[in-house]
Design a protein around this nucleic acid. Structure first.
Lengths: 346, 346
DNA sequence: ATGAAAGCGCTAACAG
DNA sequence: CTGTTAGCGCTTTCAT
């Protein structure tokens, strides 16, 4: 590595002190026009690049934010991450990404590393409803915002910013939709039971069942950890039951695709033999031949919004109100549920 | 934000100097067992977390690497990024991600920012064959490795590490395969013409055409910038020609999916009316009903390998040999090319 | 308008 | 074994 040029070098050449160079380069007032011009010229010639690390150390500001997600391989996240990265870039921030999927370290550890590296704030999409690392962030008054999932601690919730979907409504709509198409045995492929998304989608689903007079069958709800493979296995298991479900509500599209493979492999048709509904509306869901009925989430916008809220907290002198954003869910009816064949039957 | 506890605080309480605390906490020798124990205890009680920024500044090492990609929304990249992030995490590094897709800034600018932030090295997947930011990295002896695409400057190439696929062979196989299925008019949906991937896949394709005696028709090759929408449009254009192609070779699966939508929308069948072959083997390609014939790339492994090579450069005292890794391509025959219907006809 | 000096939090050199 | 001193590259007082 070539030795980097510092403000000292520039100062020496310009015959001024490092402080003057610093001020000149940072457009501070009270620097003579001549001096400033000369300094800028020299800096340009030497191809001077400021050491942002040193600047961060003294300013306590790194223009870097940390992003904690569960699994970048799940198509939900790239789109979220894209919104985050692009908005951050626009506002002058970089993002360090932490994919927790197969990390040997815990979320708490990775958050500590992030903080040690001087990130100005954190966006977390892995929160569980009773997460203690989140609690610690609140205690330390460290700036962060939760995306997609929220925290349930009642004492904390008015201190935590979050952007989530109306998951209850999403779950409710799916089951209601399926009920009206004639289904009475609806299975669920769920994620982590301590994720607010799962809890609320499930709550919505159960409420809809109750409202529709469908008997709840706990055995039909299986946790699949957002894994394609686990969803595949779970669907097989479901379909081999003596009284198999007639519809599967998958808590995300990625798992729905896993279930879809299982269904088709068993020689069953979608939607004629088994209806399938997903969640998220990933790109693949809209492909001809997949045609997955699902709940649409504005993932890109959710990411953008998360960054916007975080950066506002970081840059506004007066503390902002706590933001609790609940985005509207929207059902996208395609062909995997059978609506296009029969319409609602009740 | 709560005031952070520093080694000074610990030093004061322990009645030693900051230097001693530093050594004790970093497992340096020459520190009394008693003193060390006391210091560690105090650090624990105060929940001390080192300021890695300060450490980086003095050690000139941040344990952070920069990753520059084109577009995280293209399913090729999440898998690559996953390999990178997970390997980096395993080796103790964090990764700052730069998605160039809609960034207002150039690759060169973003690389400068990355370097300013003190990243130890860079992994770049956006290189064009004559990229000047890459040239600058070489000139500055800054550690980096190229993934997926390489640089063509003959003077530089023995100084640049890269991991790429055998793209020539991939392109060749696709056209040969299509030829043997009876196709004589093969269109290409290409990416950026200054990307080595595109150049080599195209070269392979042209060579195969030559070897097979297929007449080359430049009009049938369209640049689509890896965009789903552009591929969709291009496919429509192609199919509306008076002498449309009978097969489309898309330089990546994502574009192939765009083309697929166009084909199906026009009432044509795949593969009966038009054969379609992609590149990359993204997850969606293997879904039942999509069944895209494609060239498989080990994206996750490519990412891992890139990090491994970079970190070796960073941590080995003696400079390593320059790594030029060319991964083997492998054709995955599914149903979008028609092989399952007719087999090879020549 | 510019220089001098201090210091961010940490580590590395050399003393003691 | 431990303390003192110096300094990474930058910014920010406070003098001049």
């Amino acid at each position: 590595m070539i030795k980097k040029v510092t403000i000292k070098d520039i100062a020496r050449i310009a015959g001024v002190t490092p402080a003057t160079v610093s001020m000149a380069l940072n457009n501070r007032p009270r620097i003579g026009a001549e001096t400033r011009k000369k300094i800028i010229k020299i800096a340009g010639e030497l191809d001077y690049q400021p050491d942002l690390l040193a600047r961060s150390l003294i300013c306590r500001k790194s223009y870097t934010i940390g992003l904690v997600i569960t699994n970048i391989a799940d198509p939900f996240f790239p789109e979220l991450a894209q919104g985050i990265e692009e908005k951050a870039d626009e506002l002058g921030y970089s993002v360090i990404i932490c994919n927790m999927n197969r990390s040997m370290r815990t979320v708490g550890e990775r958050i500590e590393t992030l903080r040690g590296k001087g990130v100005d704030g954190i966006i977390c999409a892995t929160a569980l409803v009773d997460d203690s690392p989140i609690r610690k962030l609140v205690d330390d008054h460290f700036p962060f915002v939760l995306l997609n999932r929220r925290h349930y601690d009642p004492d904390l919730s008015n201190k935590i910013d979050y952007v989530v979907l109306n998951n209850f409504s999403g779950g409710y709509s799916v089951v209601k939709h399926l009920y009206r198409l004639g289904h009475n045995r609806i299975a669920q492929l769920a994620g982590h039971f301590k994720a607010s998304t799962v809890i609320e989608r499930n709550k919505g689903a159960l409420q809809a069942m109750k409202d529709c007079g469908i008997k709840q069958t706990p055995r039909l709800t299986i946790g699949c950890e957002y894994s394609f493979e686990q969803a595949y296995d779970a669907a097989k298991k479901l379909l081999k039951m003596k009284r198999p479900p007639t519809a599967i509500f998958s808590h995300d599209d990625y798992m729905a695709l896993g279930a879809r493979e299982a269904v088709l492999e068993m020689g069953l048709r979608i939607p004629e033999d088994i209806a399938l509904v997903g969640f998220d509306d990933i790109n693949t869901a809209s492909l001809t031949g997949i045609d997955l009925t699902t709940i649409s989430q504005k993932k890109y916008e959710m990411g953008e919004l998360g960054v916007k809220i975080l950066v506002e907290k970081l840059e506004k002198a007066v503390p902002q109100l706590v933001n609790h954003v609940v985005l509207k869910d929207r059902m996208v009816i395609r062909k995997s549920c059978g609506y296009h064949l029969t319409g609602y039957v009740r």
